[in-house]
Amino acid sequence: MATSRGSTTPTGDRRVRRSQAALARALLRLVEEQDLSRITVADVAELAGVSRSTFYDHYRDVHELAEAACTAMIDGLIESLPGDFNTADPGREATASLEAFFGSLAEHAGLYRALLGPQGSARVADHIRHRSTVAIQERLREAVESSEVPEMARPLLELPLDVPAAFTAGALIGVAAEWLQGGCTRSPGEMAALTWPLFHSLFRIETRPSR
């Protein structure tokens, strides 16, 4: 396969990425104007400036493109989740991270609403749930390892983290889906302020010994 001068990246790979990026951008524009179910391959291809055959080189249908576009954004979106759950007064940093999370959802509300709604994509919902669970579990582990906890309270920190992480990820997805279906009537900032206490109440590491 040919490569450009001074580069080891195959030109074909770059063409594939450019085509996929163009198709994703086109879909994101279209889904803000109409329901995903009404968007055709021809609509996306025309707006992206590619042929229908090029579309089918990459995706089976519009729904598969939507799943690819959504899951790609999820990886960046998950990074905005809070880093420290174990603080009663998180200040601006923690709530700002949740605000960024809801803000990212709101930016592409049409797409997320379609994929997380009643007729949505189980694949996308599962991807979000899994990625969120992994990210939250890692943040919990970091919080536990960095906490100064009395020796008598150490057993509390030896509990498995996968179940509370999965529980929280599922709850967060449920809150986000409900908010999207309701038209995002609350701002991302309001959602962050309402959601943070739930995070903290679930993951607060209790350091006081029982009587």
Score class of each variant (00 low, 15 high):
residue 105 L to T: 12
residue 29 R to M: 05
residue 210 S to R: 09
residue 100 A to C: 09
residue 37 S to F: 10
residue 207 T to L: 09
residue 40 T to C: 08
residue 92 R to H: 04
residue 7 S to I: 10
residue 56 Y to V: 02
residue 114 A to Y: 08
residue 61 D to T: 03
residue 84 D to S: 10
residue 35 D to E: 15
residue 125 A to N: 02
residue 148 E to Q: 07
residue 44 V to Q: 13
residue 90 P to E: 08
residue 164 P to S: 00
residue 198 L to R: 10
residue 3 T to L: 03
residue 181 Q to H: 14
residue 111 L to W: 02
residue 22 A to S: 14
residue 180 L to D: 13
residue 31 V to R: 13
residue 97 S to F: 02
residue 178 E to P: 01
residue 105 L to D: 05
residue 10 P to K: 06
residue 203 F to C: 04
residue 165 A to W: 04
residue 83 G to I: 00
residue 165 A to P: 03
residue 95 T to M: 01
residue 141 R to T: 01
residue 27 L to Q: 07
residue 76 G to D: 15
residue 196 W to P: 02
residue 101 F to W: 13
residue 137 Q to T: 02
residue 169 A to K: 06
residue 105 L to R: 05
residue 199 F to I: 10
residue 184 C to W: 05
residue 192 A to N: 07
residue 113 R to Y: 02
residue 157 L to W: 04
residue 145 E to T: 05
residue 200 H to G: 00
residue 171 A to L: 11
residue 14 R to Y: 00
residue 103 G to V: 12
residue 34 Q to M: 09
residue 113 R to F: 04
residue 104 S to W: 01
residue 116 L to W: 03
residue 88 A to W: 13
residue 85 F to L: 15
residue 88 A to F: 05
residue 26 A to M: 13
residue 11 T to E: 11
residue 137 Q to N: 05
residue 184 C to P: 04
residue 181 Q to E: 15
residue 16 V to I: 14
residue 83 G to C: 01
residue 38 R to N: 12
residue 109 A to L: 02
residue 116 L to R: 12
residue 23 L to S: 08
residue 41 V to P: 03
residue 210 S to M: 07
